[in-house]
Each structure stands twice: as structure tokens, then as C-alpha cells.
């Protein structure tokens, strides 16, 4: 637990004033999910991913997606070895504890689905052979929302492979001033000491799974999900799987925040990042899903 706190504060040292995003990132990690950052270039997506992976102590890989990328560039290829007269698997960059999939919407859908499949199954199948991915396995994907030319936005049905979707956003004035004055963040990263190790992360994940969730909180979660299903502005409500994900994420968030129980604040904190990309509004309602989610949070009673 102490190690988790150290890791969190270390990352917060690097990503200034974005404690909520850092919490969400750690929550996604400890809940065994993946994180999608939808943001402009240069706000610190890469730095965040790098800081996360460094603090975890595992190895990390960065994959810069382009439109000529093939699935093999991600998962790896089998190469025929003349000497041994057999195929040998060369693992791709996905074989790492933390993978930063940068600008995922630049790749073709085919390549995207290779990544998404690997994320979901936590293993890679090449030429009929299955290779498990390391544990823990955590993907931070980024997507540029403005850059639409020549991109393949992730289809809606695929978006729920990501446990949480969030954005970092611009820093506040004071944080920006510190960024300008203080040394480059990359220098900070180079001095980064890992606070955790892959084994420790697995322990924390187990701890998060066991965190107690009380009856009133389950009521609250059910009410939220029911509200999405009844809302007139939405095409469809959250699925039971999404509900399960909400419980997992809320537990992880509580753990990250040092609580020994699952708190309603956790549900409120993760609900927008968890729900907005899973919900689709009716075009004629003139609402967007973030507004609907805010409205639901604002109108559902906390028991």
C-alpha cells in the first residue's frame, strides 16, 4: 500500500495538477483494465504512460501507430529459421508490462483489432501458437480527437475494450508556469525510481478485487445503471458487463485513494470515464453522452 502511495505521488510529481487523471490511470491498472486517453498531442500523454511504467518497475514499450502498420508489427512475427529449420516467434512490442499505443486511430482497423484482441485476451496467437502476455499487462492508448483526416476512429463496439476513457486537458495557469520554469519532465523521468514491481502490482490487484462493497453502494451502482437504461436521450443503457466493470474500477479507485472499502466517491469518480464511451446518444436528442452522464450523476440519489 505504501509503495502504491509512493508510486502515485511520484507520477504526480511528473504530471503536474492532474491528480484525477493519475488516479484513473492507476485505477484502470489495478482493475486489470486498459486506459484510453483522448487528447491533443503535447499535453503529456506519453509522459504519463512513461511515468506509470517506470514507477511500476516493469518494462514498457511504446508503439507509434501509423496507417501502414500491420498486425505483425504489434504482436510479432514467426520467422523461418534456416538453421533450426523451424519457425521462431519474434515477439512484437506488445510483450511488455506497460504498452503505450500512441495515436491508435492512425492504424487501419485491422491493425487496431489485433491490438484490441490482445488486450482482451491477454495473449497473442500467431500461426496457431499462443503466447501469453506478461503480467501485469496494461495498455495506455491515445487517440487524437481533432485529427480526423486519414484516420480510422475506433468503432463504438470496440471502445468498451478500454475500461476507462479520459482526457488530460490543458494544465492550469499555475501548473503551466511550473512546467515552464522547472526542468524538462524527461529529465525527471530519467531519475525515476520504481516504487513497485510487477509482483507487487499483482498483489495490489488481488487486494482491489477483495475490497468490500456494501449494500447501499451496490444500490447506488444499480441505480446509476438503471438510469442509463431509462434515459430518453440514449440509444441503449449500460450492459451488465459495464456494471461489473464499474464495480471493479470503483474498487481499484478506492484502493488507490487509500480506502479499505469501496466508497461512493469512487463510483462518482470513475463513472464518467467508464460510461461516456459506452453510451451513445440519440442524434435527435441533441445531447452528448458526457452531458447525459453528468445529468445522471447529478440526479441519482446516493443511498
Amino acid at each position: 500500500m505504501a509503495a502504491l502511495g509512493r508510486a502515485r505521488s511520484a507520477v504526480n510529481q511528473v504530471i503536474l495538477g492532474k491528480a484525477e487523471v493519475v488516479d484513473l490511470a492507476f485505477s484502470a491498472l489495478l482493475a486489470g483494465g486498459h486506459l484510453l486517453l483522448e487528447d491533443l498531442p503535447g499535453v503529456g500523454k506519453t509522459t504519463l504512460a512513461q511515468a506509470m511504467s517506470l514507477s511500476l518497475g516493469g518494462d514498457w514499450q511504446r508503439i507509434q501507430f501509423t496507417n501502414d502498420m500491420l498486425p505483425a508489427d504489434i504482436v510479432g512475427v514467426s520467422i523461418f529459421q534456416q538453421a533450426q529449420e523451424q519457425f521462431e516467434f519474434r515477439p512484437g512490442p506488445i510483450f511488455a508490462n506497460v504498452v503505450l499505443a500512441d495515436e491508435i486511430n492512425r492504424a487501419t482497423p485491422r491493425t487496431q483489432s489485433a491490438l484490441l484482441e490482445a488486450m482482451a485476451e491477454r495473449q497473442v496467437t500467431v500461426d496457431g501458437q499462443t503466447f501469453p502476455l506478461p503480467e501485469p499487462f496494461f495498455v495506455i492508448a491515445t487517440q487524437n480527437p481533432l485529427d480526423l483526416v486519414g484516420t480510422y476512429p475506433l468503432p463504438d463496439s470496440q471502445l468498451d475494450r478500454f475500461l476507462l476513457r479520459t482526457s488530460i486537458g490543458y494544465p492550469s495557469a499555475t501548473e503551466e508556469r511550473r512546467l515552464l520554469v522547472e526542468p524538462d519532465r524527461r529529465d525527471l523521468l530519467s531519475r525515476f525510481e520504481p516504487s513497485l514491481d510487477p509482483g507487487g502490482v499483482s498483489d495490489l490487484m488481488a487486494l482491489a478485487t477483495d475490497l468490500p462493497v456494501s449494500e447501499p453502494l451496490l444500490d447506488y451502482i444499480q441505480n446509476l445503471i438503471a438510469a442509463t437504461r431509462q434515459h430518453g436521450g440514449l440509444k441503449a443503457g449500460l450492459s451488465p458487463r459495464a456494471g461489473l466493470a464499474l464495480v471493479r474500477a470503483a474498487r481499484a479507485w478506492s484502493l488507490v485513494n487509500g480506502l479499505n472499502y469501496c466508497a461512493p466517491e469512487a463510483v462518482k469518480a470513475v463513472f464518467p470515464s467508464l460510461a461516456t464511451h459506452r453510451l451513445e446518444t440519440r442524434p435527435e436528442s441533441g445531447l452528448d453522452s458526457a452531458a447525459v452522464v453528468e445529468e445522471i450523476l447529478g440526479t441519482t440519489r446516493v443511498p
Partner: peptide, 15 residues
């Protein structure tokens, strides 16, 4: 043009 009835349960939104 018509009438429709409903209940509010005090917790959820009703459409």
C-alpha cells in the same frame, strides 16, 4: 392527442 400514465419510484429517472 393522448394520455399516458407512469410512476416515479423516487430513485430512477422515468421516461
Amino acid at each position: 392527442d393522448g394520455l399516458s400514465g407512469f410512476d416515479l419510484d423516487g430513485i430512477n429517472l422515468e421516461t
